[in-house]
Amino acid sequence: MMRGIRGATTVRENDANEIIQETKRMIEEMAVKNEIKPEEIASVLISVTKDLDATFPAKALRLIDGWKYVPVMCMPEIEVPGSLPQCIRVMMTVNTNLNQKDVQHVYLNDAVQLRPDLLKDS
């Protein structure tokens, strides 16, 4: 079954290293919590708010062992007045046996406010 796993995080600054490290932390947590292996991933889409342009957050995936062939693409997030700044959002499409209600979405840093209804206790 194909499922989407959502994730989001924020950074303090428009800094390439911080963007990559926070993206990597989020992606790894998404994979661990949902027991996802790289070969089960169809694709990963990453969006960033317009205030983040120091690097491509997709570079973070290349730092994870075994993720060399995972298709990934970055894009800008749409601008909505009052939306969360310095935010990186992820949609990971995976093959999994998890029921939709059992998927564990990951929201880190200030992004926890985006979808508190989807957060599960660890």
Rank of each mutant, 00 (worst) to 15 (best):
Gly7Ala: 08
Ile88Tyr: 10
Glu29Met: 14
Val94Glu: 00
Asp65Ser: 14
Gly82Lys: 11
Asn99Cys: 03
Leu108Gly: 00
Arg12Cys: 00
Met75Tyr: 10
Asn14His: 01
Leu45His: 12
Arg3His: 06
Gln100Ala: 13
Glu39Cys: 07
Ser43Lys: 13
Val48Met: 14
Met75Lys: 13
Leu118Gly: 06
Arg12Thr: 01
Asp65Arg: 15
Asn34Ser: 06
Asp102Leu: 09
Met30Cys: 07
Val44Trp: 03
Val32Ala: 08
Ile41Phe: 03
Trp67Pro: 02
Met26Arg: 04
Ala58Trp: 02
Arg3Thr: 00
Ile5Leu: 05
Leu61Ser: 02
Arg62Ser: 11
Met26Tyr: 05
Lys33Ser: 05
Gly66Ser: 09
Asp65Glu: 15
Met1Ser: 15
Arg115Trp: 10
Arg115Asp: 07
Ala58Asn: 11
Ile88Leu: 11
Glu35Phe: 10
Val80Leu: 14
Ala8Glu: 07
Ser47Pro: 11
Asn99Ile: 01
Met92Trp: 09
Arg6Tyr: 14
Lys120Val: 13
Arg3Ser: 04
Pro71Trp: 04
Gly82Val: 10
Arg6Ile: 08
Pro57Leu: 11
Pro116Asn: 10
Leu98Tyr: 07
Gly7Asn: 09
Val72Ser: 14
Asp117Met: 01
Val112Trp: 03
Gln113Cys: 09
Thr10Val: 06
Tyr107Arg: 07
Ile64Val: 14
Asp53Met: 04
Ile27Tyr: 15
Gly66Arg: 11
Glu77Asn: 13
Pro116Leu: 09
Asn95Arg: 14
Asp121Tyr: 06
Glu40Trp: 08
Ala58Gly: 15
Asn95Trp: 13
Val32Thr: 08
Pro81Leu: 12
Phe56Trp: 12
Val32His: 06
Arg6Trp: 10
Val106Thr: 06
Asn109Pro: 00
Glu79Leu: 03
Asp102Arg: 09
Gln86Val: 00
Ala8Trp: 04
Asp110Pro: 02
Cys74Gln: 11
Thr9Pro: 03
Val106Ala: 00
Gln113Lys: 14
Leu108Tyr: 00
Val90Tyr: 10
Ser47Thr: 15
Met75His: 10
Gly66Tyr: 11
Ile88Gln: 10
Tyr107Ser: 06
Glu18Pro: 03
Val90Ala: 14
Gln100Leu: 12
Asp102Val: 08
Lys33Cys: 01
Pro116Met: 07
Met91Arg: 15
Gln113Ser: 15
Ile64Leu: 10
Val94Met: 00
Pro116Gly: 08
Ile88Met: 10
Gln21Cys: 00
Lys37Asp: 07
Arg6Thr: 04
Thr49Asn: 05
Ala60Glu: 05
Ser83Arg: 09
Glu79Trp: 01
Thr23Leu: 09
Tyr69Asn: 15
Arg89Gly: 01
Asp117Lys: 05
Ile46Ser: 08
Ile88Cys: 10
Lys101Trp: 11
Phe56Val: 09
Glu40Pro: 01
Leu119Ile: 15
Thr96Asp: 01
Thr10Pro: 03
Val103Tyr: 12
Met75Gln: 13
Met30Trp: 03
Asp117Leu: 02
Gln86Gly: 05
Glu28Ala: 07
Lys24Met: 10
Val112Asn: 02
Ala31Ile: 07
Lys101Tyr: 12
Asn109Cys: 02
Cys74Arg: 08
Met92Gly: 09
Gln86Thr: 02
Thr93Cys: 02
Asp102Ala: 12
Asp110Ala: 14
Glu39Pro: 03
Ala60Lys: 05
Leu119His: 04
Lys59Trp: 13
Leu119Asn: 07
Ile78Lys: 06
Leu114Gly: 02
Phe56Leu: 15
